[in-house]
């Protein structure tokens, strides 16, 4: 992978957010390369969600900068929204719309023309062979398909960065693997993937990750590197060590 800075997709420097006297995010810095799969982890209250909201242009930073594909989230929040896609395990597709209607709706929201939507949907359904599902209600689809379609909807307007929130928690191991296949394909094609999750197994699928606690980044690197640094056998152990709860280790 190319390490030079021209190839950075996300660049965060001294990013800070305070709410009154409370510092939710305390001057964090990290960067993500184009096509990288990056995990942002942390327990409840660690500052993960606040960071995410700033990166999506939904919350203004108190100080510091964050660039998404060279766009400053504080200066051009509106523009940032077109640079990102978002998918969560809990909500992504409208269950009472058909597959096609979901794509048409999201394409419209992101300002794609009707012609582009139609054309892109046809290409996609042909390539991934889901043409016959197009007019089925989303709620009637098997979970494996829903999962894949939710990702494709998030990727539909070709955003350079896609955020995945607990994308595979609660799905069976085979669906989960098929889902990661799709993510890998997308990352290889140059899309940057940011995964936030509570599911520590999922963290192991990331190329690199950052673990937050009390508003700061406490661990940053490849999964293997982080395990090494904390002398831990798994991410759970790293997490407990960062939280000062080693006593809970069995």
């Amino acid at each position: 992978m190319n390490y030079n800075t021209n190839n950075l997709s996300i660049k965060v420097e001294n990013l800070e957010r305070r709410f009154g006297n409370f510092t939710a995010v305390n001057k964090i810095s990290f960067s993500v390369r184009r096509g990288e799969i990056f995990g942002l982890l942390g327990a409840n209250g660690a500052g993960k969600t606040t960071t995410l909201r700033m990166l999506c242009g939904l919350l203004a930073p108190t100080s510091g900068t964050a660039l998404i594909d060279n766009t400053d989230v504080a200066r051009q929040p509106e523009k940032v929204r077109f640079k990102i896609g978002y998918m969560s395990q809990r909500f992504s597709l409208y269950e009472d719309l058909t597959v096609w209607e979901n794509f048409r709706f999201y394409g419209g929201v992101y300002g794609m023309s009707a012609k582009d939507i139609r054309k892109k949907f046809e290409d996609l359904s042909q390539r991934l062979n889901f043409g016959e599902q197009a007019d089925r209600l989303t709620r009637d689809l098997p979970l494996g398909w829903k999962q894949k379609l939710a990702f494709m909807v998030a990727a539909f307007h070709n955003p350079p960065v896609i955020f995945l929130d607990e994308p595979t928690s609660g799905v069976d191991p085979m669906v989960r693997r098929q889902f990661w296949d799709l993510i890998y394909e997308s990352a290889l094609a140059g899309t940057t993937i940011i995964v936030t999750t509570h599911y520590l197994d999922e963290a192991m699928y990331c190329d690199r990750l950052a673990i937050m606690a009390e508003g700061s980044i406490k661990a940053y690197g490849t999964p293997a590197g982080v395990l090494d640094e904390f002398k831990a056998v798994n991410m759970q152990e790293v997490f407990l060590k960062i939280a000062g709860k080693e006593a809970l280790l069995q």
Binding site: A43, S169, H198, L240
Partner: peptide, 14 residues
């Protein structure tokens, strides 16, 4: 333990 963060999850199993 669904949807609960990893630290609370470890506490719960304890």
């Amino acid at each position: 333990t669904t949807g609960v963060d990893p630290v609370s999850r470890a506490e719960f199993w304890g």
